[in-house]
């Protein structure tokens, strides 16, 4: 497969992070893994290590959303988008071995990127939802932006920490969507199979 050098560096950095963690990965490691010189890596990531690590996190984010889009593509209602999206995203988080490893061993390095700087994640999820919300009649006084922001926050919360919910149980996910996500957002009553 034809890869741009930037892409190749990101892949290589990701492999290094998987092996050694975020803080122990250096520009040299990434360059060696990519089969490029250190100078080349710096040409693409002038900020060095920090920029590289941020870029890998963003890249994984975008990759995740691309997969998520495929997963919910063709859903026939907003409810279905949210139900499929929540279940898929939770599974993806659990099965993401590198994410789980870094969360375990270096929470202080990764979590600032995912929580305090979570504006970016909220904005990504929210942007993803806007087209689906545009197709709906919203509750009186509700703006698309406000609705998308609230949904994004809640989705991020459930995906990251399900609390007492089992997101692999379709009935529970439907109940979440029907009672906690949509009633304040939509003018119409949300439909779904979820029980109280």
């Amino acid at each position: 497969m034809d890869e741009t050098p930037r892409q190749r560096i990101l892949e290589a950095t990701y492999s290094c992070v998987a092996r050694w963690g975020l803080s122990k990965t250096t520009v040299e490691d990434a360059a060696r893994e990519a089969g490029l010189s250190r100078a080349t890596v710096y040409r693409y990531f002038p900020g060095g290590r920090d920029e590289l690590v941020d870029a890998v996190v963003s890249w994984q984010h975008l990759k995740f959303f691309a997969t998520l889009y495929e997963e919910v593509h063709g859903a026939s209602s907003l409810e279905e988008v949210l139900e499929r999206g929540l279940a898929f995203a939770r599974r993806a988080v659990l099965e993401h071995e590198v994410l789980q490893m870094v969360l375990r061993t270096e929470p202080g390095v990764l979590l600032p990127k995912l929580t305090v700087e979570s504006n970016r994640t909220v904005a990504l999820i929210s942007g993803f939802l806007v087209p689906y919300l545009q197709a709906e009649e919203l509750a009186p006084g509700m703006s698309i932006h406000h609705a998308a922001d609230f949904l994004a926050r809640m989705i991020l919360s459930y995906i990251s920490s399900p609390g007492h919910w089992e997101l692999d149980d379709p009935e529970q996910v439907a109940s979440l969507v029907r009672f906690e996500l949509l009633p304040g957002v939509l003018r119409r009553p949300p439909v779904g199979t979820g029980g109280g």
């Binding site: 202080g108 390095v109 979590l111 995912l114 305090v116 990251s160 920490s161 399900p162 609390g163 007492h164």
Partner: peptide
């Protein structure tokens, strides 16, 4: 100054403990 001490309670693993 030490986000690694606190942030695990605001997302992922330990946030479940907080929620419960």
């Amino acid at each position: 100054n030490e986000p690694g001490v606190v942030l695990p309670y605001l997302a992922f693993g330990h946030m479940d403990d907080v929620l419960i």
